[in-house]
Design a protein around this nucleic acid. Structure first.
Lengths: 211, 211
DNA sequence: TAGCATAAGAACTGATAGAGAACAAAATAA
DNA sequence: TTATTTTGTTCTCTATCAGTTCTTATGCTA
């Protein structure tokens, strides 16, 4: 996405990332022109349109409310500026798609619980990993990647519909998703049915909120 | 929600947030007009209506002087969770005193994993709490206090020598320290043998460092 | 040369903001 | 109670603002 931007477009994007706190309200084109030393809204608008195409800022559908970064763009800053804060994106319950939140919030995460790759946080619903010490209501930190080694715990999207947190075993003609719960069985799929969305790298639990 | 507001509407909302203490009673439209430099109540009223539609303020049932921030709006204020840092003080292994570190280090801890009382962090050694999802090598966040309710998980110092992480049950003539591990037995002590050093409030695990 | 990125500026359109009038409901004073 | 003032609500009208779409122009590079 970002690679397809021209130099000026990247410059604009980085400006928006770095100064997003500076604006209490989303900036107007005129304000951005002033800030970037341009004299014409029209010129800037072309760059803005490119950023919208790259899914970095949101179009506001005819409204006049300034331009806003997308959630996707915000995850990018996060990795650049403040490695300790990760996006909390929603809830993962076995058999359901990940329930995404309207407003992504950020949590400060201890350095050892994450990797230096992009990560995000989910809340776990269900007991499928209970024998691995992952309980209903725990938070998990997931490294965003599309592949895994056998024996890793992954966020897997099955049939493009159901998300689940399981051990994974991948063989040429079969992919197994294995719970850590004696009362549940391993699930067998064709490799193409299973899409890996991330790998477990950390886990957290609060004893004050849950009980 | 808040994104659906126009600039002026957001400005009004922020004004209300910042000056909510300033008004002993909810402000009238005229007072708000004065404060925001408007001359017409009618203009302001449109903004107020928009904020009501966004569930940010509520009218008080037809009464005058009615506008108040909603609970939802108040949650937006204290949303700034500063990454707070807790001291990492050492290792707790059942049967050993807490092995204190020479140099105490600090870790950034997510807000929900701690309390607003003083807390500290230990590394767990051993499997005595394995059925509670607390594994060898996990970090635990402990709220520093000298008392506990029955059923809480505590850091207990036994005979002023051995530290351990267990469920506690306190009775007039007996204190029980109960592991969460079917292969281990509960330990019985006289109350004066057991000193509580803190109560478990959070737990964390890294899957990248431990395996 | 053609093609692209960049910029300026004009012109257009719908969104937004504000003033003021008029009226209704509520609060206050008599 | 009644009369008066304050406050909330609805409306119209107008001016301005902000996003968009143009055209034009200037470098730069393959």
């Amino acid at each position: 996405m970002i690679e397809s931007l021209t130099r000026k477009q990247q410059e604009l994007f980085h400006f928006l990332l770095q100064h997003q706190d500076r604006f209490t309200q989303p900036p107007t084109l005129d304000e951005l022109c002033l800030a970037m030393g341009l004299k014409s809204r029209g010129s800037l608008h072309a760059h803005v349109t490119a950023l919208i195409g790259a899914n970095l800022i949101k179009p506001l559908g005819g409204k006049q409310r300034g331009i806003q970064l997308t959630d996707y763009a915000k995850t990018l800053i996060n990795h650049q500026d403040d490695p300790c804060r990760l996006p909390y994106v929603g809830v993962i319950a076995a058999g359901q798609p990940i329930e995404a939140l309207e407003n992504i919030s950020y949590m400060a995460i201890p350095e050892p619980l994450k990797t230096d790759k992009p990560c995000y946080i989910l809340t776990v619903k269900g007991d499928s990993m209970i024998e691995q010490g992952i309980f209903d209501g725990d938070w998990v930190i997931i490294e965003q990647r599309a592949y895994a080694r056998n024996g890793e715990i992954v966020v897997a999207l099955v049939n493009k519909a159901e998300a689940t947190l399981k051990f994974i075993e991948q063989y040429p003609h079969e992919t197994l998703l294995i719970p850590a719960n004696a009362s549940m069985k391993a699930l067998r799929y064709k490799p193409e049915q299973v899409e890996i969305q991330g790998v477990l790298v950390g886990q957290m639990r609060s004893y004050t909120k849950t009980q």
